[in-house]
Amino acid sequence: MNRILIIIAYIIIALLEIPALMKETNKRELILYSLLFSSSLAFSILLGLEIKLIDPAKIIENIVKLII
């Protein structure tokens, strides 16, 4: 049931946001939005399935430590 509600919510958001982005004709912004939107949808579905995910804060922390 959670998965269905998540998918419906994302469809509604996509129907509201994507047409406005397409009118602006900024393809880079549309591509970036689509990538982030798709990845957040995937993570939301995985969380809805109660699959334990890694903490992205740890990954970002390790990357920052490598840079500094």
Rank of each mutant, 00 (worst) to 15 (best):
66 L>D: 09
23 K>F: 12
15 L>Q: 08
21 L>H: 07
64 V>W: 09
47 L>N: 07
30 L>E: 06
45 I>M: 08
31 I>G: 00
61 E>Y: 04
66 L>E: 13
58 K>C: 03
19 P>V: 05
65 K>M: 11
53 L>K: 05
48 G>F: 03
8 I>L: 07
40 S>I: 02
38 S>I: 02
9 A>W: 02
63 I>M: 11
12 I>R: 10
14 A>D: 07
46 L>D: 03
51 I>E: 07
28 R>Y: 01
40 S>K: 07
10 Y>W: 15
38 S>M: 04
47 L>A: 06
12 I>A: 14
14 A>T: 09
11 I>A: 11
50 E>W: 02
25 T>K: 15
45 I>Q: 01
32 L>R: 03
10 Y>F: 15
66 L>H: 08
23 K>P: 00
56 P>W: 06
45 I>H: 06
26 N>T: 05
8 I>V: 07
39 S>W: 09
50 E>F: 07
8 I>D: 05
26 N>L: 12
28 R>W: 01
35 L>S: 08
44 S>Q: 08
28 R>S: 09
39 S>A: 12
61 E>D: 14
5 L>R: 12
8 I>T: 08
1 M>Q: 14
66 L>Y: 05
64 V>Q: 15
5 L>D: 12
30 L>K: 06
43 F>V: 11
39 S>T: 11
50 E>D: 12
6 I>G: 00
38 S>E: 02
58 K>G: 05
44 S>M: 12
25 T>S: 11
10 Y>T: 03
55 D>Q: 10
13 I>G: 05
37 F>P: 00
54 I>Y: 03
32 L>Y: 00
64 V>P: 03
35 L>I: 14
17 E>G: 04
66 L>W: 01
27 K>T: 13
63 I>V: 11
28 R>Q: 05
49 L>D: 12
42 A>Q: 10
27 K>Q: 07
11 I>S: 10
53 L>M: 12
36 L>M: 13
5 L>A: 14
31 I>E: 06
